[in-house]
């Protein structure tokens, strides 16, 4: 069994899980919801095995390194962290329906990686040969994943709030009735960001420490660094919005969605649109 086969099974699991979750939204049948979660967890376990296997395969090829070195590997890892954070939040707070808004992000990542990206295992270029790579990438991606979960929750918040505003005329029913109350969604959004913010902070700090170790400057306003700081500013604004009258709820949810859009730009957009500006040996991702 090769890692790429396991990755295909993972992608399939996330697809099935997402479809089951959509049926769950329509049917409101608890057993269907459980099946959706379990399918996602099955995918998570298979994906864990696949990542470890790919790690081993790189050693078999003679240039062993953690599978976090190119776009394909990072997208796969991102999907993995999204389901992991979802699992943590589901276990702690027991709101299964969030899966319907979070699993699609993981599926999107896996599908893109499997269909559109070069999956070859390549040796590490000198700039990446450092343990800092591991610390830096793991903390950043766990942070990003928590923001993905928060974004899914915020979208639910905005949909539900909209429906409830109209509820004066038409009673809120249908799919939205399944959602937790907007108070709970607001709280879950905050909790997801409480997981993501410290991880992003650690990600930026380890990145700065690595840059200082490898290039002699902890901060050089390189586009990637700057975008990670932009993301950090947005979530810092979110944290303060939560304790300021007039900014709670709707505006905080919008900040959370904007924050995740900035996160995705930081992760992908910088490399796709701004990569021409990167200096020598300085493109960790």
């Amino acid at each position: 069994m090769s890692s790429s086969m396991l990755f295909n099974i993972t992608t399939l699991s996330y697809m099935v899980s997402m479809l089951i979750f959509f049926v769950f939204l329509g049917s409101k049948n608890k057993t269907v919801g459980l099946a959706g979660s379990l399918t996602a967890y099955f995918g998570l376990i298979v994906q864990t095995a696949a990542i470890l296997l790919r790690w081993k395969e790189s050693y078999d090829m003679g240039h062993g390194h953690a599978p976090l070195s190119n776009l394909y590997e990072s997208v796969v890892f991102f999907s993995w962290t999204i389901i992991l954070i979802y699992a943590i939040i589901e276990f702690k707070y027991r709101y299964r329906v969030i899966g319907a808004f979070v699993v699609p992000f993981a599926l999107l990542g896996m599908a893109w990686a499997q269909l559109g990206l070069n999956s070859g295992i390549e040796p590490l270029v000198p700039a990446l040969q450092s343990n800092w790579l591991l610390y830096h990438v793991i903390t950043c991606f766990l942070g990003y994943a928590a923001f993905a979960v928060a974004c899914g929750i915020s979208i639910m918040y905005l949909i539900k709030e909209r429906k409830e505003d109209n509820a004066a005329t038409t009673p809120a029913g249908g799919i939205v009735a399944m959602f937790p109350s907007i108070k709970v969604l607001d709280d879950l959004n905050y909790r997801a960001i409480m997981i993501g913010f410290p991880l992003l902070t650690l990600g930026i700090v380890t990145g700065a420490a690595w840059a200082n170790y490898a290039w002699g400057t902890y901060w050089s306003w390189d586009p990637k660094e700057t975008w990670s700081l932009i993301v950090w500013f947005i979530y810092a604004a979110f944290l303060h919005a939560r304790i300021t009258r007039g900014w709670v709820g709707r505006r905080a949810a919008i900040l959370s969605v904007v924050g995740f859009a900035a996160t995705i730009f930081c992760y992908l957009g910088v490399n796709l649109f701004l990569s021409g500006l990167h200096s020598y040996g300085k493109s960790p991702m």
């Binding site: 306003w221 586009p223 700057t226 975008w227 700081l229 932009i230 500013f233 947005i234 810092a236 604004a237 303060h240 919005a241 304790i243 300021t244 007039g246 900014w247 900035a262 910088v270 701004l274 500006l277």
Partner: peptide, 21 residues
């Protein structure tokens, strides 16, 4: 004012984009 903090943080985020483009 905490509102000033939020505005400053958002302004810093928004203006920082310029230097990446």
């Amino acid at each position: 004012s905490l509102k000033l903090s939020i505005v400053l943080l958002i302004l810093l985020a928004a203006t920082s984009i310029i230097g990446t483009i």
